[in-house]
Simulated assay, not measured.
Amino acid sequence: MKTMMGKSVVAGLCLVLAAPVFAHDPSASTPEKSNPGRTVAPVTEAERYARRCQGRAPDRDVWPQGTQLWGTRRGWGARPEPDERRSVLVSVDLAPLKPGASGVPSLRLEAGRLVGSPEASSRLVGTVLQGTSSDGKPVEVAVCGAEPSPGDSELVWYRIEAWNPVAQRWENPCVATNQIPDPRALAVSGVWDSSGAHQAVEGRFTLACENGVISKCIHWGYKPWVSHNGQALAELHQACTRMARADYCGNGQSHTNQDTPIDIYDRLGMLVPTTQRSAAWDPERASFEAAWAADGATCLARTRDRRALETILRECPGRFQTGQLVELGEGDRCTVRRAGGTPRAALLRNRTY
């Protein structure tokens, strides 16, 4: 995609954010794969906590990326859950369920870092937190590593494990890819629901995995706790999560494919259109796709996955109106616009092939 302050770099939606810090130890034993036909006996609470953070290599499928909001698994079952708006982990409580070795009594979130009182965030290893899945079920989450992001003191990447009640073991809930086989997570204030809407909830936060758009948009520069030239970036970050998943209707439904190249630029000038041709991007092949607000597209010229615009109009009836050509500048124009909205006031725009 792009770097900050007017510079630009284009990449696909499965952009590698950073090299994994917590590489798998070849000497660690590989866990036995789950057998869906076998009943796994439950373990005691003491045994469950003793098993956390053991460095086991994940034995999950490498699912395609491009539609994920949280970057987490959709379910614990053997078969992949088809609904992309489901997740085994959507929010986490700040109050520790079981303190780590350092005895952290409480937590707070400062920018993109979890801070334990009175210990520093690097002492959180082993702490177990109470999380919640998209269907409202409780899930235990263990903090197994904390690594400050190189060159950015505001961010800490966490290696996490969640207790899989089906397989009766701790697993990384983040979806792996070939580029990031053991993904980590960022701590982000508030929670996202199945529609992709963000809500500030006292005492709760999100562990956003590397392969999801919540953390990607932060990596691209849209930190929701930061201001740029006096304007808070929280709404810009939220608009980015809609744009990255091509969530036109603002209902949590994505319309993109893995590895689709897109070019992002915003009204603040933090990211600007890419004009130079490279191996990753050819500006002459690209065309305007959409303008974006925090709740979805405000102006639409085409779909990213090449489906007809009529399918989007049917998906969210009454949201858009057609017919009038809207000129946004820089050659961007569309004929499908948000009903009652002002497309020119959009926070983000993008182009694609």
Rank of each mutant, 00 (worst) to 15 (best):
M1Y: 04
M1L: 09
V9M: 04
V10P: 01
A11W: 12
A11L: 12
L17C: 07
L17T: 11
P20I: 12
P20D: 15
A28L: 15
T30V: 15
E32P: 00
K33D: 11
S34Q: 04
P36F: 03
G37W: 15
Y49H: 14
A50R: 15
A50H: 09
R52T: 11
Q54L: 14
Q54W: 11
D61I: 01
T67M: 03
G71S: 08
R73V: 01
G75R: 06
A78C: 00
R79P: 00
P80W: 04
E84F: 06
R86Q: 14
V88M: 03
V92W: 07
P96H: 05
L97P: 03
P99Y: 06
G100M: 08
G100Y: 09
A101D: 11
S102M: 10
G103L: 10
P105W: 07
R108G: 10
R108L: 12
R108D: 08
A111S: 14
L114P: 05
V115P: 01
S121V: 00
L124H: 01
V125Q: 08
V128P: 06
L129V: 09
L129W: 05
S134L: 07
V139G: 02
V143Y: 02
P150H: 05
G151K: 06
D152E: 13
E154S: 15
Y158N: 10
R159I: 05
R159V: 12
E161K: 09
N164C: 11
V166M: 07
W170P: 13
A176G: 10
T177S: 15
D182A: 12
V188D: 03
S189V: 04
V191R: 13
V201Q: 12
E202P: 02
R204W: 02
T206E: 09
A208I: 08
G212E: 02
K216M: 09
I218Y: 05
W220V: 11
G221V: 05
P224L: 08
H228N: 09
G230Q: 07
L233F: 10
L233N: 07
A239K: 01
A246E: 02
Q253A: 07
Q253H: 04
H255G: 01
D259V: 06
T260N: 09
D266H: 08
R267M: 07
R267E: 08
R267H: 06
G269H: 11
L271P: 00
P273T: 12
T275H: 06
W281I: 02
E284T: 13
A290N: 00
A291V: 02
G296N: 02
G296A: 02
C299S: 09
R302W: 00
D305K: 02
R307P: 00
E310M: 13
E315D: 15
F320T: 06
Q321K: 15
G323E: 13
G331S: 08
V336R: 04
T342Y: 03
A345T: 06
L347C: 01
R351E: 03
